[in-house]
Design a binder for these strands. Structure first.
Length: 292
DNA sequence: CTAGGATCCTGTCAGC
DNA sequence: TGCTGACAGGATCCTA
């Protein structure tokens, strides 16, 4: 679920809490969620590769993590040594939005806790698809997932993207843009949103996409993700409204995602939900005409 | 090589 | 109430 904007939001938000802070202990509640052996070290850098987040330490090691569908990262300041009452603490939470953002932690979904001298970072993950992996910093870019990542929409060239669409010509365009080795950063939300913005039906065969449409799709992907990053993609601030009630950050920018039955903002037609590449897919049947 | 489906796992919801 | 199947903001593996 967390896609590029969410991971970027985490990177920026977490940076101000943990940069130059020492990790002195890691507590693992689920073995498959934490790979490798941890050794204490100070955070020197936080990097993002597509949807993967990397925390570099000063001991030559890095923590490479991927939140997959339901991962979330929640930082509680001074969890072990609280100041005067809870109001003295700050919490930063982002990733898969859920009650955990404001819940008492650790809880049933907490897989790993990373202890810093100024607080604790909780890695929660309902479905256990996500992971944190310890690896030498020099090997991060050789990691199987990272080395296969295509450029992000801001870096990819139209020629490169178009060439990949030609190779995957029989697949629906949505399935192709979800493939991180074709273009990186898009997940189910932003794929639907970008296709809507570019007025392309998700079932269109990749081989039918013109070069002009390919260029427009790249632009649309940038636009929808930039907008989400600006609004702080699924962080606690946007998830919990000022009055304390639960809010949906998708309301702030989604034009089609989870809006089936509602009206298209562009033409007033009714948004539909269909199935493409085994994923729930949202379209405006009028703005996105299917080409056979 | 591509294409399509199953799979990892937990939880929730709709429909009997 | 209890069961069952479908589905979920991802990526990989297997088969054809």
């Amino acid at each position: 679920m967390p896609e590029l904007p969410e991971v970027e939001t985490i990177r920026k938000g977490l940076n101000k809490f943990i940069l130059k802070q020492k990790i002195y202990k890691v507590e693992v509640f689920c073995e498959k969620s934490f790979i490798g052996e941890f050794t204490p070290g100070v955070v020197t850098n936080m990097r993002r590769f597509g949807k993967a987040l990397v925390i570099d330490l000063d001991n030559g090691k890095s923590l490479m993590m991927h939140l997959r569908m339901t991962g979330q990262l929640i930082f509680d300041e001074r969890t072990e040594r609280p100041l005067e009452g809870d109001s003295a603490r700050e919490r930063f939470a982002a990733g898969h939005p859920s009650e955990n953002f404001t819940a008492k932690l650790p809880n049933k979904q907490t897989r790993v806790v990373i202890y810093f001298e100024n607080g604790a970072l909780y890695f929660n993950d309902q479905r256990k698809f996500g992971f944190i992996k310890v690896m030498p910093t020099v090997e991060v870019e050789e990691d199987n997932f990272i080395k296969r990542l295509a450029p992000e929409p801001w870096k990819i060239t139209v020629d490169d993207f178009f060439e990949k669409l030609r190779r995957r010509k029989k697949s629906p365009i949505k399935a192709v843009i979800l493939d991180q080795s074709v273009i990186s950063g898009l997940g189910n939300i932003y794929a639907d949103e970008a296709l809507f913005l570019a007025k392309i039906h998700p079932l269109t065969r990749a081989g039918e996409i013109t070069k002009k449409e390919a260029a427009e799709l790249i632009e649309a992907a940038k636009t929808v993700m930039e907008k989400s990053i600006e609004s702080g993609g699924s962080t606690m601030q946007t998830y919990v409204k000022a009055d304390g009630t639960k809010g949906d950050y998708l309301e702030m920018f989604a034009q089609v995602f989870r809006r089936e039955g509602k009206k298209c903002s562009r033409c007033g037609s009714t948004i539909q939900k269909i199935r493409v590449a085994e994923r729930g897919t949202h379209i405006c049947p009028n703005c996105q005409k299917e080409v056979k």
